[in-house]
Computed example of a mutant assay.
Amino acid sequence: MTATKQVALVIGASRGIGRQVSIDLARKGYVVVVAAKTTSDASKTVPSPPDPNSPQSTINTVEREIREAGGEATAIAVDTRDVEQINHLVNETVRIYGKLDILVYNSGAIWWSSVENTPMKRFQLMQKINPEGLYASVQAALPHFGKNGWKGRIIVVSPPIYSRFFRGKTAYAMGKVGMSVLTKGLAMDFIRQGRKDMAITSIWPAASIESAATEGMVKKEPSTGKDLRKPTIFSDAILAMISASAESVNGLLDLDEDFLRNRCGVTDFSKYSVVPGATPRRIMPAQFPTLEVEEQNDEGQRMDSTKIRRAKSNL
């Protein structure tokens, strides 16, 4: 089956932000493949749809929500710690719909604590799911973008790079910042290779977003609800990034609020507040450092390990 609509693959789509992005992509006319580890029998889930931040929300209930609203979606289970499962997910997406136009990597593991209090197993889990899962997903998707004539978008949930992000969560930051480095590096590859219609962009929330994690915080301290935004702000920003020209967003590390304000002219963010009338506290800096330096384009002769290995094998 070849889709006439654009095909989006959302990895980490069972709850919260991933669910919202999937639903809104479908509303905008995209065919959506929703992927995550958790599955269920959506026909037996009560209520339907379930609380989007609860364990009852799975890729199967999200698929059902989209289909019942008139959209087109397919749920495919994946454990992003397993490269073969990721390869199967991407290949199955293309087998079903004939192509892949958009990849959104929202899958993530979290543990915020000091190095001393972050067990090695927890550190390894975060690296497997966060940077390694992203890297495997991008590698699996790139050949299919190539078959599209190098026209496509990759959206990564990772932060701008700045010092405070490392504080108190070093192990988590190592993986998340690594994801942002991939965004910057692959963007440079696209430019160097002349792939003007390809773009990879990172997005991060400016204020805390309602999720399973923050829901627990609100239960303990209801007043924290005033600092939360609905996941629709993140979804709106992602849709705007996808619609923007590739050149304008390739390699961009941005925040949901800032992108909507600076690129889309949004000035009123009140509709995104979980508590009506509240102004959620911004948890990110107003400005970020640039990563360019004066000798940015003066790297000398570029080494390519692939060519070196090929040369050695031909000896």
Rank of each mutant, 00 (worst) to 15 (best):
V274C: 04
I238K: 05
V33W: 10
R15D: 03
Q85K: 10
M120F: 13
D268H: 10
V34F: 06
Y30E: 04
P276L: 12
I129T: 02
D227C: 02
L260S: 13
Q124N: 07
A73E: 12
S14F: 07
N314Q: 12
D227Y: 08
A286I: 00
S305F: 03
R153S: 10
R15I: 15
A246Y: 00
E92F: 01
A213F: 04
G194Y: 15
G133D: 02
I155E: 06
K184I: 03
L228F: 15
G18W: 05
V7L: 02
R261N: 10
S202I: 08
T80P: 12
F190M: 12
A171C: 10
T58M: 13
C264N: 02
K196S: 13
D189M: 06
P289N: 05
S40G: 01
P119H: 05
T4H: 07
G265L: 06
A206G: 04
Q301W: 12
G175R: 00
K44T: 11
Q6N: 03
T170D: 07
D256M: 09
R310V: 11
R64W: 09
I161N: 00
N297P: 04
L89T: 08
V138T: 08
S243M: 09
G12Q: 13
A26L: 02
T38S: 11
D79T: 15
R281C: 07
V90L: 01
V94D: 02
L142P: 05
K128Q: 05
T232S: 11
T170F: 09
A141Q: 02
Y97T: 11
D24K: 03
S223E: 14
G29M: 07
G216L: 08
Y30C: 06
E294C: 11
K307T: 08
K176N: 03
S223M: 13
I76R: 00
K230C: 04
M241W: 01
V115R: 01
V90N: 09
A212D: 15
D41S: 01
G133N: 07
N60L: 04
L253I: 08
R281D: 04
A36K: 04
D51G: 14
R122E: 10
I161M: 14
R195N: 10
L252W: 13
S54G: 02
V10R: 12
P47G: 04
G277M: 04
K230H: 14
K220A: 14
D189H: 03
D24A: 07
T80F: 15
A42W: 08
P47R: 01
E68T: 11
T201A: 08
S180T: 06
V181I: 11
Q193R: 15
L315A: 06
A246V: 01
K176Q: 01
R95A: 13
P50N: 14
D197V: 13
T39G: 06
R310Y: 14
V104W: 06
V7N: 10
S57N: 13
V115A: 12
V274Y: 09
I200M: 01
N130Y: 03
N117A: 14
I86G: 00
L134F: 06
A75I: 13
V32H: 10
Q56G: 00
M120S: 09
N117I: 15
A73T: 08
V32E: 03
R302T: 15
N87P: 06
G216M: 02
I233K: 04
E63H: 10
